[in-house]
Simulated assay, not measured.
Amino acid sequence: MNKPFKIPESVLVVIYSPALDVLLIERADKPGYWQSVTGSKDALDEPLPQTARREVFEETGIRVVECPPDATLKPTEVALDNLRDWQLSNVYEIYPVWRHRYAPGVTRNVEHVFGLQVPRDIPITLAPREHLNHMWLPYRAAADHCFSPSNAEAILQLPRHVCSY
């Protein structure tokens, strides 16, 4: 059975600690390529916040959950209030190495940027088919370490998007 083509609309989720350390993950299909959590919508009508929550869980094991303010969360959970839509989007050329995942003729993707604040010591469980390693870096160093210019730019904008949590 043929795998369906990817939808050329995705999320980029910058995961960061209160001290503005940023979580980066290394791609399994391109060792040495470090990035934030990214992923395409599963369906055209999938809401972007749902895409962000799903991708964060699939790639890191972190669950973003709806809960009352006084709820006790599991060590791998964070409250939905910690996920913020930065109201930024990037349109970029899909790298040729990954174009086969999209329908013929699709060369551009629209990426929507989110931020997710988590405790620095939250357990990370990578999807081994997708990522090899993870690391935390101060946000400027994390931006320098990203292979994607749009990811680096999003990370550099982190301080202006951090609001009172």
Rank of each mutant, 00 (worst) to 15 (best):
M1H: 12
K3W: 12
K3G: 06
K3C: 10
P4S: 05
K6G: 04
I7Q: 04
E9H: 03
V11C: 13
I15S: 02
Y16K: 03
Y16N: 03
S17I: 09
P18L: 12
P18G: 08
L20K: 12
D21M: 07
D21I: 04
D21Y: 14
V22K: 03
L24R: 03
I25L: 06
I25P: 00
E26N: 11
R27S: 13
A28I: 09
A28P: 07
A28H: 10
D29Y: 11
P31I: 11
W34F: 09
S36Y: 02
G39P: 02
G39F: 06
G39N: 07
D42G: 15
L44R: 01
L44F: 05
L44P: 02
L44C: 01
E46W: 00
P47T: 02
P47F: 01
L48C: 01
L48G: 00
Q50K: 10
T51H: 03
R53T: 03
R53Y: 01
R54I: 01
E55M: 03
V56W: 00
F57Y: 05
E59F: 01
T60Y: 01
T60E: 00
I62L: 05
R63P: 00
V64Y: 00
V64C: 12
V65F: 02
E66N: 11
E66H: 14
E66M: 09
P69D: 03
P69A: 05
P69S: 09
D70E: 10
D70P: 02
L73Q: 08
K74S: 14
L80F: 10
R84C: 11
D85P: 01
W86M: 09
W86Y: 11
Q87I: 03
L88M: 15
E93V: 15
Y95Q: 15
Y95G: 08
V97Q: 15
W98D: 14
W98M: 14
W98C: 10
W98H: 13
R99M: 10
H100A: 15
R101L: 15
Y102G: 09
A103M: 14
V106C: 11
V106M: 09
T107M: 11
T107G: 07
V110K: 07
V110D: 04
E111V: 10
H112L: 07
H112E: 06
G115V: 03
L116N: 06
Q117I: 15
P119S: 14
P119Y: 09
P119A: 15
D121L: 08
D121N: 14
D121P: 04
I122Y: 04
I122K: 08
I124R: 07
T125R: 11
T125I: 04
T125S: 13
T125G: 01
T125K: 08
L126G: 02
P128G: 08
E130D: 15
H131C: 13
H131A: 13
N133S: 13
M135F: 01
W136E: 01
R140Y: 13
A142T: 05
A142V: 06
D144I: 03
D144L: 14
S148D: 07
N151Q: 10
A152T: 08
A152P: 05
E153T: 13
E153I: 04
E153V: 08
L156N: 04
Q157G: 14
P159H: 10
P159D: 10
R160K: 15
H161V: 03
C163W: 12
S164T: 12
Y165H: 13
Y165V: 14
